[in-house]
Every structure is written in structure tokens, then in C-alpha cells.
């Protein structure tokens, strides 16, 4: 292998008390890949994200981000390795402006100290000018630049999700992890968003791991899909293979009743 995988998870499991939420999870993502992680509600998708990004520590197994073992790392260290995420239950900084939200996204790229901030040194000004420019660019990519100074909580739901993506992109990640970015959007918005995710991947040349609850949505854009059910990987392959896989169909049929 010539390039290091941006993400490598080997035999990852986590237990909460008696419940094994994720069991023997394996996944490697190469740079610029767009991978889907799907499964019914409660399958353990978000838990996988939480382990990959260091919010939870796996009970077993090994996770490498950009080749570095993350066992002893904190969430913010993992971000520095190049993995940035969004959250299923939106976690934008609600009472901060859109601009500040995105600037915080770029936090790891600021290289000045509190003393620079207090003295308004040259380093400070250069960084801030750069940050402002980049943040506005990202906002305009999502058509949010005209509201740059509004509080994030004043945005409609869908825009908050997009703001969260912009914020994650500000970290200039090698791997973008999106947790159900389409949740709560209508069909039109969803299709648009999926196209946009693909465009982001192409524009920034980064890998994307996309969680989606609805299987149909990811089929069109992902190159590879992994299906979780009750914490176990029940299928892993190209979209066409997944679509035809009887185990997957059953897992989803079982759920269809409750949806």
C-alpha cells in the first residue's frame, strides 16, 4: 500500500453495561473515498462515529486516523489528525454568529497565543484576516454568507445542518464524517444535499464517511457502503451488491413496519 488509509478500524467493539452497541467493526477508508454507513435506527452508527472521533473509547479494537493509533488520544487530538465531524442532533454553537461558528471550526489552524490576541500582533492580524476570508468562502459555498453575522440559532433547521458541515470543513479535514446530514430535510433538499456532499468531496479531495438511515439516499453517491444492524456489520460492498443483499433487505424490511 502506497498511501496510508485516512481511517482504519480493526475489530472495534464497545459495550455499555450489558449491551454490546458495536461489535467487531472493521473499516478502512482511502483518501478521497466516499463511503456510506447505513443501518436501521439504533444499529450503532452514531456510536461508531463517537468511537472514531474519540468521544467514546472502544472496549476492544484499534482505530487509526492518518496512520496514528487513537487509543490514548482525546477528541481534539483526533481532529488535528484530520478527522472532522457533524452531529446527528445538531450541535452548532447556537448563540454565536455563523461566522464565529465556522472560525471555531478552523481552530486547529490558528497559530497564535493569548498574548498575540491581547496585543493585536501582526501574527494575530494575518491569521484573523485569513480566517475571515476562509470562513466567508465556506459560508458562501452553502449560500449562508448573507447571514454571516446572525446567530446560528436563528437559522432554519436545514441551514443549521449545512452550517455544521461548513464548520467541519473549516478544520480542513482529510476525512469528513457526516452523521445523518439529511435528517429532517425534505426530499428536494435531501437530493440537493447529497449532490453537494459529492461536490465537496471532489472539490476538496477529501474522504467522506456518511451515515444515513435511509438506504436509498446513499446508493446514488457512495462508492462503498457498510451496513450495520444491532451493532454487527451485516454487509459491506458496492451499492449494487448491497441493494441485492438479502440480509440487508431483511434488516430493512424488519424496520419498515415501524417506520
Amino acid at each position: 500500500m502506497t498511501v496510508t488509509a485516512v481511517l482504519e478500524a480493526k475489530g472495534v467493539s464497545i459495550r455499555f453495561g450489558g449491551l454490546t452497541a458495536v461489535c467487531d467493526f472493521n473499516l478502512a477508508i482511502q483518501p478521497t473515498e466516499l463511503v456510506g454507513l447505513i443501518g436501521p435506527n439504533g444499529a450503532g452508527k452514531t456510536t461508531v462515529f463517537n468511537m472514531l472521533t474519540g468521544v467514546y473509547k472502544p472496549t476492544e479494537g484499534e482505530i487509526r486516523v492518518s496512520g496514528v493509533n487513537t487509543r490514548t488520544l482525546k477528541a481534539f487530538d483526533i481532529t488535528k489528525l484530520g478527522a472532522a465531524r457533524t452531529f446527528q442532533n445538531i450541535r452548532v454553537f447556537k448563540s454565536l454568529s455563523l461566522l464565529d461558528n465556522v472560525k471555531i471550526g478552523g481552530h486547529i489552524h490558528y497559530k497564535y497565543s493569548w498574548a498575540d490576541s491581547v496585543l493585536h500582533s501582526i501574527t494575530f492580524r494575518e491569521h484573523e484576516r485569513q480566517a475571515e476570508k476562509e470562513a466567508l468562502e465556506l459560508l458562501s459555498m452553502f449560500d449562508l454568507d448573507h447571514r454571516a453575522h446572525d446567530e446560528a440559532k436563528s437559522l432554519p433547521y436545514g441551514d443549521q445542518r449545512r452550517l455544521e458541515i461548513a464548520r467541519a470543513l473549516a478544520a480542513k479535514p482529510k476525512l469528513l464524517l457526516l452523521d445523518e446530514p439529511a435528517a429532517g430535510l425534505n426530499t428536494g433538499e435531501t437530493t440537493e444535499l447529497m449532490q453537494q456532499i459529492r461536490a465537496i468531496r471532489d472539490k476538496f479531495g477529501i474522504a467522506v464517511l456518511l451515515i444515513e438511515h435511509n438506504m436509498e439516499l446513499v446508493m446514488g453517491i457512495c462508492e462503498r457502503i457498510l451496513v450495520l444492524n444491532y451493532g454487527k456489520t451485516i454487509a459491506h460492498g458496492r451499492p449494487e451488491e448491497i441493494q441485492r443483499n438479502p440480509v440487508v433487505i431483511e434488516a430493512y424490511l424488519g424496520e419498515a413496519v415501524e417506520v
Binding site: V55, A75, R91, V92, L96, D100, K103, A171
Partner: peptide, 26 residues
């Protein structure tokens, strides 16, 4: 000046949502 800098924004991020702040590398 602090609150209009990277340091102050990190403070605000911590106040708003610690988990999201950590996810952004704070």
C-alpha cells in the same frame, strides 16, 4: 480583544457546547 480572537472564540465554544468544541479541535 480576547473574545474577538481565537482564544476568546474557544472560550465561547466551550460555553456553548463542550462536545462540539472538542470535535472542532478545541
Amino acid at each position: 480583544r480576547l473574545v474577538r480572537s481565537q482564544v476568546g472564540r474557544a472560550f465561547l465554544a466551550v460555553r456553548e457546547d463542550e462536545i462540539a468544541a472538542e470535535a472542532m479541535g478545541v
